[in-house]
Design a protein around this nucleic acid. Sequence first.
DNA 1: ACAATTTATGCACGATCTTGCACGTTTCTT
DNA 2: AAGAAACGTGCAAGATCGTGCATAAATTGT
Lengths: 259, 259
Amino acid sequence: MPDSDMLHEERIALIEAKLHSQGRVFAAHLASEFEVSVDTIRRDLRELAADGRCQRVYGGALPPAPRTGTHQQRRGQMPDRKRLLAQASVRLVEPGSVVFIDAGTTNLAIAAALPPDSPITLVTNAPAIAAFALDRPSWRLIQIGGVVDIALGAALGAAAQRDLSAISPDLAFIGVCGFDLSAGATAHSLEEAEFKRQIAMRSREVAVALTDDKLLTQAPFPAFAASLCTHAILEASVSSTTVATIGELGVNTIIAGAI
Amino acid sequence: MPDSDMLHEERIALIEAKLHSQGRVFAAHLASEFEVSVDTIRRDLRELAADGRCQRVYGGALPPAPRTGTHQQRRGQMPDRKRLLAQASVRLVEPGSVVFIDAGTTNLAIAAALPPDSPITLVTNAPAIAAFALDRPSWRLIQIGGVVDIALGAALGAAAQRDLSAISPDLAFIGVCGFDLSAGATAHSLEEAEFKRQIAMRSREVAVALTDDKLLTQAPFPAFAASLCTHAILEASVSSTTVATIGELGVNTIIAGAI
DNA sequence: ACAATTTATGCACGATCTTGCACGTTTCTT
DNA sequence: AAGAAACGTGCAAGATCGTGCATAAATTGT
């Protein structure tokens, strides 16, 4: 005896939407709202639970249990410091532009801080950032292929460089392992340094978001000169002399947390 | 007995318009509104659904792919059905081999079911699967680049095909939108079909894990012939006649849940 | 012009789906 | 511990579905 003004699938979708918007649903309440018996609601919730789309509890249902994926967990941690850096960084991004974002947790924070509905084109060699961008239907996403360095979480090597050679971004956020005035941006491996050098040279503007621990340090492999860097986004705790020194190289310094 | 004041195509177009303006249609309502039998309406809706222009549900139809949420929401779901399919699928994978895994939730389940410490080389065009593989330090990971179809969660197009042309996997798990004995494996878009065709032809073995709803149905764009498929992993609920029919094509059928 | 074929439609029939109710069991509350 | 509420399961009724078949209109071929 199907209800005359509500399709089964439609009700299921509404229950799931309500579940996400309100965080929980009660079987009895849903039954009166949709004017069906609680038995039917229970069946709906069972069906949702069987697909992993909700977590069945006594009296109703909750949103799906937090995913156990290790990466998902790690992603959730987004220290305020990095969030502040990211918020300052994304002001450089203009709607409609082509933006490259490198691998790294700071850069993932930048991707997360980008306006979700702005029609940007995101280019990345990091699977984690590409996967994140799947949640942004308004974006265009271009993935750089190649052999992925699992520890770094980034595609590197000849194939990646070839993919990259077809693209010239308006702006590139490059993660560096060290940033020093004499050695410039440095990386932990040769392949990584090679890749960063290429993307730095291909981009119209280069931005580097730096936590304090990377500033004025060197990693083994030089990637590109400090003067190639258009913008440096720094934490508010940096000394004014450091800011002045970087500014002398023609690098536009942005202090996170400042208005 | 065509209605004198309503052409067939005209009615189809009106149904589709109503579907989009109201978000749903009821077969019975349409029948009385257009003064035809519900059988005719059912045929119309079937026709629309075959073209992917609506989603058929009990009692009527809903707009195509209601895309109720982004990937983030859909991702966590790993129904037992898919997990069983995945567990049966991964038995095809030999340690040390090169395995391609296509986009899709079923294929993500397959990736998750692979032995974490086995030294396989994973090739994928799906950011979500690549991101998952970052949690597997023992694997080698090769990412296929290119323009990513955000709705599908997969890199497609010329760049992806070029990346792919450098690789010949031992085994490819390909997600298909429909699998039919005459039309073979079919996809929802032309680019998708092209990509699947290429990977199917480049791989030594091709495996297709199929939930029941995809079996014996067709999507608009043919990807590759059923005979190109080396293994088909099916749910335990399939009929024995279906299994026999598929077996006649030389496809090795595996029933999930069986020992 | 006439016959054959195709197409659209309606009808019959068995299969499937959804729903509400009954009944015994489990879980929560007091 | 006891009562109340929620739960799962089996069952029946009604609605819907898919398929095969017949009919009528339109199209095509001769």
